[in-house]
Structures are given as C-alpha cells and as structure tokens.
C-alpha cells in the first residue's frame, strides 16, 4: 500500500492528484469561511455569536486546523516539486512564444500560491492571534474586523490578496476536475462556468467585506 502510494506520487500525475484533493479541501474551507463572514452585514451580535459557536467546538477546532495545515503543506510541497520538474523540462527557451489558450490565472498559479500563503500568515496574525492588530479584543470579531478594515491600506491589502485568491481558484476549480479525470463531453463546458462562479463568489465576498467597511457602510 505504502509503496503503491509512493510510486503513484513519484509520477507527475500522482502529485497533481494530491494537489487537486488538497486544493479542493482548501477551496471548500474558503467557501464556508466566506459565507460565514458574510454575517458581518447583520451586525456585531450575529457575527460574534457565530464566532463563539465555532470556538465552542473544542478539539474539533484543532482537528480542522491541523487538516487545513496538512493540506496546505502537501499542496505547496507538490507544487514546488512540479514547478522544478517543469522548469527543467525546457532548458533552452523560445525566442518568440505565443499563447492561444492558456489564461493569466493558469500562468500565475505558482506565484499566486506563495503570495496567498504569505497573506494567510498575515491574516492569522491579524484576526486570529491579534499580534498584527493594534486594538485586538479576543472574542469581539466584529470590532476587530471593522477597526482593522478602517485602515485604508489594510483594506486594500485584503482586496488585492483576494484578487489573487480568485485567480488561483478560477484556474484551480476546473483544473482539479481535469486532474481527477472528471470529464464528459456533455458537461465539460460547465467546468469552466463552475470555476468562474466559485472564484467569483469566494473572491467577491472576500473583496466586498473590506470594501463595505472601508466605505463606511458598516461601522
């Protein structure tokens, strides 16, 4: 079993499958996370109660965190291995190279990834531990977020970072279907539509919330 898994992982397809499963796990989290945060619009009582309910799950919280951490580690590790393989596969580059089908999102996956990872570290220090937050109050999520986003450059930082997230998801959310072999001529055009919708919803909410606070619509 272990040897079969290792042999599978030694192929580029094996690494891609690991990236697809871990990427999908992270994407699923992002969707739930974004929908949950939307409760900011209902005001402090609703958002803080939601946060308290999540925190009250005790050991489950850590099980969740460790799963996400493992997913990020496997995803990034496989990404770097594949990137090295791909860099080595064309030692002499073209003088002129034109693209017909690839997208900006597809070409920036390997740069979007690490940028997202750095942003996530900052985001955890900002809103989870409070180390990067001047007036952090544990448990008062609403105040932490609104005070945080009222600083214009922090709001912009979140907006730009989440544009990268949306690009990463736009390519990733159809890429995983292809990687896991989910294709059928009848439904294939839905894969791109699904990816755009998913990236639009997650990216859209994550950009909308800092904007709402920055523009003073929620205080």
């Amino acid at each position: 079993m272990a040897t079969v898994a290792l042999k599978f992982y030694s192929t580029s397809i094996g690494k891609k499958v690991v990236m697809a499963i871990t990427g999908l796990t992270l994407a699923g989290f992002l969707l739930v996370h974004a929908l949950g945060n939307l409760q900011l619009l209902w005001g402090p009582a609703r958002l803080n109660a939601y946060a308290a309910k999540l925190q009250s799950m005790g050991p489950l919280v850590w099980a969740f965190r460790l799963t996400l951490l493992a997913a990020v580690a496997l995803h990034a590790f496989s990404a770097v291995l594949l990137w090295l393989q791909n860099r080595a596969s064309r030692p002499v580059r073209y003088q002129v190279q034109q693209y017909r089908e690839t997208s900006y999102a597809a070409r920036t996956m390997i740069w979007g990834g690490p940028i997202i990872a750095l942003f996530v570290i900052y985001h955890l220090l900002h809103f989870t531990t409070g180390h990067a937050h001047g007036t952090f109050v544990k448990g008062d999520v609403y105040a932490n977020v609104t005070v945080g986003f009222r600083v214009w450059w922090i709001a912009i930082l979140y907006i730009v970072a989440n544009m990268m997230v949306a690009f990463h998801l736009y390519h990733g959310m159809w890429s995983w279907l292809q990687t896991l072999g989910a294709n059928h001529p009848k439904y294939n055009h839905w894969r791109q539509i699904f990816a755009a919708a998913f990236a639009g919803v997650v990216g859209g909410i994550n950009i909308f919330l800092p904007l709402v606070v920055l523009l003073g619509i929620r205080k």
Partner: peptide, 18 residues
C-alpha cells in the same frame, strides 16, 4: 514519459490548440 524528462501538465490547453 517521466523518465524521458517531460514536464507536468498544468492544464494550460496550449497542446490542444497547437
């Protein structure tokens, strides 16, 4: 294929276009 030193697919789609 791996042994020969080809790269990995990242679903760009340039192959089918070419």
């Amino acid at each position: 294929m791996e042994e020969a030193g080809f790269g990995a697919c990242t679903n760009h789609g340039e192959c089918e276009a070419a």
